[in-house]
Design a protein around this nucleic acid. Structure first.
Lengths: 192, 192
DNA sequence: GTCTATATTGCGATAGAC
DNA sequence: GTCTATCGCAATATAGAC
C-alpha cells in the first residue's frame, strides 16, 4: 500500500471515529505514518483528502450492502438479511455519521457521496419491497418508498440508541421490532 | 437572562449545530456576548459548560415529548402524535446528535444525560405499547421494548436520511412507513 | 463579575531544500 | 516524493488588574 493509499485509509478511520471537524491533518499524518509534505503533495488539503476517503467508504458500503440485497430469497428474507447483517454497531455507520457533521453538510461536494449512497440504498430496498408486494408477501397498502425509508432509518437510528446506551442491544431491539411488524412471513401462494 | 444563562443558551445552540468537538469556547463567548473572563468565572471550562447545556436540553426534550405522550387517546394515536409532532427536521435531534460525538461518548459524565433521556423515551413508549397490546390495538406477539426501540430509531434515523438528502421528505417517508406497519388502527372491542 | 494580557499547543497550509 | 522550516491564526486556558 503506497503513501497515498495509507493517507486515504487513515482518513477513513478518523472520519468514522471522529467525524470531519474532529479530524486534523496532523492526526491523519500520524495514523498514516506520513509527513506533512507528503500529504500536501498527494492532496490539495483536508477537503480533498476527505473527498477521496468518503468516496472509497461509500463505494465499499454499496458493495457490502449489495452482496446481501442481491442474495437469493424472498423479499422478507433479503430485508431480514440486510437488517441482521454483521455490523460494528457501536462504531456506527461510516456514511450516516457524516450527516451530523456541519462542514460535510455545508459542502455540496462532500455531501454528494453521502446522499447518493443513502439514496441508492433506499431505492434498492424499495425495489425489493415492490417485489414482495407483487408476490403477496406484505399487506397491500404498503408504500415501497416509505417502507424502504423506515428500514434504513431503523438501522441509522439503531446506531444512535446503541451509542447512547453504550451497548449493541438497543440496535438489535430496534431491528427485532421492525422484523416483528414486517413478518411473520406469509407463505407465498404457489402458482403451479 | 443573566450572563450565565446566555452562555448556556449559546452552548446549547452550538452543540446542536456543530457538536462538541466543533464548538469552541471563543464561539460560545461570541454567541453569548460574553468575554473570556466571564465564561471562566461561571464555568470551569468547556466540559463544565457543555454539561450544563446538555442537561438543560435533555430536560426540555423530556418535557416536550412528555406532553405529547401523556395526551389522551389510544396507544396508536399517542405514538402517531409522537411521530408526527412538529420538528426542526433538518437540524436533527439535539440529544441524539451528541451520540456521534467522540468526546461526548468518551466521557461518562457527558454521555449520562444523553443515555438517560433516550432510555426514558424508550421506556415511556414501551409502556404505551403495552397498554395498546392489552387493549388489542396491536397484533399479539409484539414485544413492547422492541417496538419502542424501533419507534425511537425511526425518528433518529429519519434525521439522518433527511440531512443526507437535504430535505425533510425522507423523515416523513420513514414515519409514514412505520405508521403503515403499525396501523390501520383496529377498532377496539367495546366492553359494554 | 468582567476585563485585558499572556501562555501553550495545535490547526491548516506554504516554501523550498533534498 | 518526502522532508524540515516557517507562518498566521485559533483552541483552551491562567493571571491578575479593575
Amino acid at each position: 500500500m503506497g503513501t497515498q493509499d495509507r493517507l486515504i485509509e487513515a482518513t477513513r478511520e478518523l472520519l468514522w471515529e471522529r467525524g470531519y471537524v474532529g479530524t486534523s491533518p496532523k492526526a491523519i499524518q500520524q495514523h498514516a505514518g506520513a509527513g506533512q509534505g507528503s500529504m500536501y503533495h498527494h492532496f490539495t488539503g483536508k477537503p480533498d483528502l476527505a473527498l477521496a476517503a468518503i468516496g472509497r467508504t461509500a463505494e465499499e458500503m454499496r458493495e457490502a450492502a449489495g452482496r446481501v440485497l442481491d442474495a437469493p430469497g424472498s423479499a422478507y428474507e433479503r430485508i431480514s438479511a440486510y437488517l441482521l447483517r454483521e455490523r460494528d454497531v457501536l462504531r456506527g455507520c461510516p456514511v450516516g455519521r457524516l450527516t451530523m457533521d456541519p462542514e460535510v453538510i455545508a459542502s455540496d461536494e462532500l455531501r454528494a457521496p453521502v446522499d447518493e449512497t443513502i439514496a441508492w440504498l433506499r431505492e434498492r430496498l424499495a425495489a425489493i419491497v415492490r417485489e414482495g408486494l407483487d408476490r403477496g408477501e406484505f399487506t397491500p397498502g404498503i408504500t415501497p418508498d416509505d417502507l424502504a425509508a423506515t428500514i434504513v432509518a431503523t438501522v441509522q437510528g439503531g446506531y444512535v440508541l446503541a451509542r447512547a446506551s453504550g451497548s449493541a442491544d438497543a440496535f438489535d431491539a430496534g431491528v427485532r421490532g421492525l422484523l416483528a411488524l414486517l413478518g411473520p412471513p406469509v407463505e407465498p401462494v404457489l402458482h403451479i
